[in-house]
Simulated scan of single mutants.
Amino acid sequence: MTSKAQSMALMVPQGSSSLEAYVQSVNHIPMLDAEKEYELAKRLQETGDLQAAKELIMSHLRFVAHVAKGYSGYGLPQSDLIQEGNIGLMKAVKRFDPTVGVRLVSFAVHWIKAEIHEYVLKNWRIVKVATTKAQRKLFFNLRKSKKRLGWFSDDEVGMVADNLGVSKKDVMEMESRMAAQDPAFDLASDSDDENDFAPTQYLEDQASDVASNVEAANWEANAQTRLFAAIKTLDERSQHILQARWLDEDKTTLQELAAEYDVSAERIRQLEKNAMNKIKACMVD
């Protein structure tokens, strides 16, 4: 990847299609093995080599995108969550000590989550007070009209509605919005109601191993691709037998396939075994 492409990868674009392209891009950046990671981290630690820092950051952007995906339930832009996570990654790279004996991803995940948590805390808001131009106008005028603390009486609501040229319903709704409190980010310590809600209930498990999760997902996707490629190398009859015996929802018996091909059940079993051995050989290569 060129220097220009690396710089672009650090900029998280807006928009679903652009974001998808970004995620695909960072997933194609090669991961570092332990030896290379140690070498780069030592260069950064001892000489302040910025190119080494960039390589460490670029190779771990995929982990940030994976962590940020776990916070998508807050209604906040995914691109912003990733961007905040990238800031956490950069802070982690700056503080990483390779001589401790842990991989960078294990160290960085805490910094990545800390930045995302801070962003969620600062931006969490269930109800927007005024979302339209008319609501914003009513909001500011209502604040000027409210001379005391507490709720308006019915007469006051009518008077304000007349003065501002709006309905009594609009005045009462805006007053309710202005009086509303942001929900607590965590549940109260004495809460025992199963219907109680707090944003913290949707945070990821701090004990999750991000590196292992991403590695497992990548391995599964790669294994599946290789499996279907191996199946395509078989002759049509062998493919059909494996499909019927293992891949279809309603499995077919040896006897049913034997009747279909007018051979013995033992012959179908042999064909199935031979096909399995060919696939195993392709998967090992």
Score class of each variant (00 low, 15 high):
M31W: 04
A68Y: 01
E39L: 07
G85F: 08
G73C: 06
K36F: 03
E39F: 06
K36R: 11
I87Q: 10
E84P: 00
M90I: 14
R62N: 11
A52L: 03
W111A: 13
K113Y: 03
E55R: 13
F107R: 04
S106E: 11
P77T: 12
A92E: 11
V67T: 10
V100A: 14
L40T: 06
S79F: 15
H110L: 11
G48E: 10
T47F: 05
V102I: 13
T47I: 00
A114N: 04
A68H: 01
A65I: 05
S106W: 03
W111C: 04
D80N: 11
Q45K: 13
G85N: 02
T47A: 10
I57F: 01
E39Y: 11
A53C: 04
E55W: 09
E39N: 12
M58Q: 10
L44P: 01
R62T: 14
P98R: 05
L61W: 08
G73T: 10
I112Q: 09
Q78N: 01
Y71V: 05
K42V: 14
A108M: 04
E35N: 14
I87R: 03
Q83I: 00
S79W: 03
Q45G: 05
A53V: 01
I82W: 05
V64I: 02
L56A: 14
K91V: 03
I112T: 14
V102K: 07
M31C: 09
M90V: 15
P98C: 09
E84K: 01
S59M: 01
A114Y: 05
K69E: 04
E84N: 05
R103D: 08
H60W: 10
Q83R: 12
G88N: 08
E46L: 14
I112L: 08
L81H: 01
K94A: 15
H110P: 00
F107L: 02
M90K: 10
L56W: 03
K69H: 04
E84G: 00
K94I: 13
Q51F: 04
K69R: 08
S72R: 13
A65F: 08
L50W: 02
F96L: 13
S79P: 00
Y71G: 09
P77L: 06
Q45S: 12
Y38D: 12
A68P: 00
A52E: 02
D33W: 06
V105E: 12
A108I: 07
V93M: 09
K94L: 13
D49S: 10
L61A: 02
F63Q: 08
A53H: 01
A114S: 15
F63T: 05
K113T: 15
V102D: 07
V105I: 15
K54D: 12
L44N: 15
G70C: 06
E39C: 00
G73E: 01
H66N: 03
L40I: 07
E84S: 06
A114T: 11
S59G: 08
V109L: 11
L50I: 12
E39S: 13
A68G: 02
